[in-house]
Design a protein around this nucleic acid. Structure first.
Lengths: 232, 232
DNA sequence: ACACAATTTAAACACGTGTTTGAATCCAAG
DNA sequence: CTTGGATTCAAACACGTGTTTAAATTGTGT
């Protein structure tokens, strides 16, 4: 059936790397086609339009992503919540920082956060939501609270924020902010795990009464009680 | 001396809000000029080009930013490092989340991180670097380590990452990830402070030997100074 | 009222970028 | 070899967006 001769696959491969590195909007179809020595019209011929090419790449990578998620969950299976969170962070950070072929989806997600495309919805549904669900589940067990608890969700966001920031955008590099990055993903993951587990260990140790006694502000309380303690 | 009649100031005001909300690249000059009932050429007449308008807005806001930084530092003056970090987080988060006029610089910086412009350099120099310097100073005292210590810088990055993520981009909102945001900046700041202080309290308690015994990987291992600095 | 500078305006221009087109080329099947 | 579909190609098109231009209008000092 004379399937994809060659050009089509070349376009997929080259475009995937470009999209992962700079995002959908900052890559031109001419750049994609020129990169593999093809004509400008090649993208439209093989994929309909630029978004069609992007869609195929994203959907292809989502399968890999789901496998990664499985790997992260399996890595902690049987262990305690502590070890599960560590495993999650390690796998996540490693995939985000190592530009190996096949883990472009994390970088693509970074770009989607910066400059969304119509593909964001499916990425959220198939990647983000399962991830946050698992993360909240682990942290919930860690804190001894239900996984939809407000404190649990905020802790999950704290962990997630740190992981996300591991991938320094070009702008973050020019600013000299962000984590120390000498290419050692494991060391970075270890810091984040250490930091986060320490944070939550201190949280689970404190009772509500203790925390409210400290300053009157309590993260997990409803919005009402916070009005009074607005200013330090 | 027949200063700016009106149009010029209107352009500045309207453009500032648009830029803060969506970033330099995602705002068109027609949108700016139409918004105040001016002609398309108004921007070029009064500011040379689009970037000139942006530059004026950024430079104007940087002064306010430096004042904010001063406020954050003053808020913790005299207190201990713990209180200083709390004050810093509170001021930062509040300015980031509250769309009040005059604290657009934080939102502008978010946009610069997503899509840099030529103004990024001056923003880094006058805003980011002083901020990270102060943050590292506070955390250094908190951990009993020099402020250029690797662990200190990573902790600063962890704190900063959480603060940054407070401002949910449109994409982050569509994903249902991120911190609980019911508009209560104080509650969010409190979570981040609680989380981070707990994390670092547990770090300062552990000796290097203990941490290395746990898993073998040590965050601060690569650089020289930390090898010997076993005890905290 | 006049003259001159400052401002505003409508229109056009320049250019990057995604897309389309119609002809040329390739290639396997008959 | 011939044929017909698949693929490639150069060229042009469509359109958004920043910028420029030259005329019209407004404002101000004398």
């Amino acid at each position: 059936m004379t399937v994809a001769p060659l050009t089509r696959d070349q376009l997929l491969g080259h475009a995937a790397e470009l999209f992962a590195e700079r995002g959908f909007h900052k890559v031109t179809v001419r750049e994609i086609s020129d990169g593999v020595g093809a004509n400008v019209a090649a993208v439209n011929y093989h994929f309909g339009d630029k978004l069609g090419l992007y869609r195929e790449i994203v959907e292809g990578n989502i399968a890999l992503m789901e496998e990664t998620m499985q790997k992260a969950m399996d890595a902690g299976r049987g262990g305690d919540a502590d070890g599960q969170l560590r495993a999650f962070i390690e796998v996540f950070v490693e995939r985000l920082l190592t530009p190996r072929d096949g883990n472009q989806i994390q970088r693509l997600m970074m770009r989607e956060m910066e400059n969304p495309t119509p593909m964001l919805d499916v990425i959220v549904e198939r990647v983000m939501e399962p991830r946050m669900r698992y993360l909240c589940d682990v942290i919930g067990r860690l804190l001894g609270r239900p996984s939809d608890d407000r404190v649990v969700r905020n802790c999950a966001a704290s962990v997630h924020a740190q992981c996300i920031m591991c991938k320094r955008t070009p702008a973050l590099v020019r600013m000299n902010i962000g984590f120390d990055d000498d290419g050692d993903a494991a060391a970075l993951a270890d810091h984040i795990a250490e930091f986060s587990l320490g944070a939550m260990a201190s949280m689970v140790g404190k009772t509500m009464a203790q925390r409210e006694a400290r300053g009157g502000r309590e993260v997990g309380s409803a919005k009402s009680s916070l009005k009074a303690a607005a200013s330090a």
